[in-house]
């Protein structure tokens, strides 16, 4: 059964010594991550995270009243307030974004989550959700976000927000 078939193509080059011959070019950061806090508890965490240095990530809280008029009759837009204080809206921020990350600690942001989820589906933007369980029963928050976040992280550790963003090169 010992049938070396591709020895001519350096199959044995997977050693640590060979690793130094790997092409080493700078890796581009992701195109843009938009982090949106859906409620007051989440806002506190997101504001803290926003103070760290990031490549292209931008951070927002949902303004109230959250939902703007349904712009095209299908998908609602959401008013956003950046952690730097400028006003924006979801439809603007999603242009050029890779990922929309929603952060929630209660189910208060259920409508906003739906609007963000729908808008992202329409544009083919990836969605992620972080539920800050904070020791409380997070069931309702999770149900509110589940349909709208392709990946949902339920955590007791608010550091996970920055942890995820770092891993994603945000």
């Amino acid at each position: 059964m010992n049938r070396p078939i591709l020895l001519n193509s350096c199959a044995r080059a997977a050693t640590s010594a060979e690793a130094r011959f790997r092409i080493n070019v700078p890796i581009a950061p992701s195109r843009g991550t938009r982090v949106v806090a859906l409620d007051a508890g989440a806002e506190r965490v997101v504001r803290r995270v926003a103070e760290q240095p990031w490549a292209t990530a931008r951070f927002f809280v949902c303004k109230s009243p959250t939902l703007l008029a349904q712009s095209n009759g299908e998908v609602a837009d959401v008013g956003l307030l950046s952690t730097h204080g400028f006003e924006s809206r979801l439809s603007l921020e999603l242009a050029g974004a890779d990922v929309a990350m929603m952060v929630a600690s209660t189910d208060d942001g259920a409508y906003a989550a739906r609007a963000i989820g729908d808008a992202c589906t329409l544009r083919g933007t990836m969605t992620a959700g972080v539920v800050l369980a904070g020791g409380r029963d997070a069931g309702e928050t999770v149900s509110a976000l589940r349909p709208h976040a392709r990946v949902l992280l339920v955590t007791y550790d608010e550091q996970d927000v920055s942890e995820l963003l770092t891993a994603l090169r945000a």
Binding site: A14, T15, S16, E18, A19, R22, I27, S30, V99, M101, M126, T127, A128, R150, V151, L153, T155, D157, Q159, D160, E163, L164, A167, L168, R169
Partner: peptide
């Protein structure tokens, strides 16, 4: 490679399980 160089990865949200496990 024997020890993958994780400084070079391009992770995506679908890798959240791995990200959380490492943490």
């Amino acid at each position: 490679g024997p020890i993958v160089d994780r400084t070079k990865e391009r992770l995506v949200p679908a890798d959240s399980g791995i990200i959380k496990a490492r943490q």
